[in-house]
Simulated scan of single mutants.
Amino acid sequence: MTQAALRPSIWRPRVLVRGIVLIVTLAALGLLFEGLGLKHLLEQGWIDEHIRGQGLTGEALFVVVGALFTAVGLPRQVVAFLAGYAFGIVIGTGLALLATVTGAVGVFFYARFMARSFLARKFPDKVSKLDSFLADNTLGMALVLRLAPFTHNLTTNLVAGVSGVRPLPFFAGSALGYLPQTIVFALLGGGIELDPVISTAVSVVLFAVSTVLGLLLWRRYRKDRDEGDVS
């Protein structure tokens, strides 16, 4: 047996290089957001100056910045809130959803093409669990993941990219799962100029409903899986 065959696969040069590229890229993005103050882009003052009233240019800029914002793991709820504030509830919901899905697509394919070997060997248990979770009904299970209140958006995108999950059903399920909270926070943001009491009350109700739905779907999945294991 050759020396290369004996060497653990995670230590092979190509795998290491891809892993290092992933780590350096994520670290650089974090430093860029911190050092240049980019984390303050999506704030009310910036929205007023560069986004509101700027037509298609403002909308496109918002989607690009919102996608970058969510891609590095910052809260998608903030994007939805400010989209509602800048564009109103209906258009804001659509643009925030587009930004969030775009961010997810970018991270997914980055992980798949640049870091698959490294992450699959570094976190085999997580990748295996997600593969198993998404194998039978990718769209439905992606919906459950996005609705469940305890899953992390960036981690899910990275691990899904590393796994063998089919992209289109995963993105479609993700978009459906993102939608309830996107509506909730766009409604909150749009409510600043409407009736804040009513918009807040409706948002609380919708958030509670989406959270309960996510938990129920998660419990249903766990129950079906346990019953399948027993049989």
Rank of each mutant, 00 (worst) to 15 (best):
A201W: 13
G55Q: 03
A86V: 01
A175F: 11
G214Y: 12
T102W: 00
I10W: 10
G30Y: 07
F109G: 05
G228S: 15
A175M: 15
V165H: 07
V184L: 13
S9P: 01
L68E: 01
A80L: 04
G191W: 14
F207Q: 08
T211W: 11
Y178K: 14
V63M: 01
I10C: 08
P169T: 00
A142Q: 05
D195K: 08
I10F: 13
H152G: 09
I91H: 09
K223C: 05
L188C: 10
F150R: 12
F133V: 10
D224T: 15
I51M: 02
G189M: 11
L26V: 03
P167W: 15
G37A: 06
D195H: 08
L98V: 14
V65P: 04
P124N: 06
V159G: 01
F207V: 03
L217K: 14
P167S: 15
S163Q: 01
K122L: 15
V105A: 07
Y85L: 03
V105T: 08
V17W: 03
F109M: 08
P149T: 05
A148T: 11
L29Q: 01
H50K: 14
V184Q: 11
K122D: 07
M114S: 09
K122E: 08
F87L: 05
I47V: 15
L56I: 09
A142L: 13
R219P: 03
A28T: 02
L154V: 06
S174Y: 11
L29H: 00
G190F: 12
G177E: 10
I192S: 12
S174F: 12
L179E: 07
V204G: 12
I192L: 15
H40M: 09
L56C: 02
L97M: 14
R146C: 15
L130M: 06
R219I: 10
Y178Q: 11
V162C: 07
A175S: 14
S203Q: 13
L143E: 02
K223E: 11
I47S: 02
A27Q: 13
L143H: 07
L134Y: 02
L143R: 07
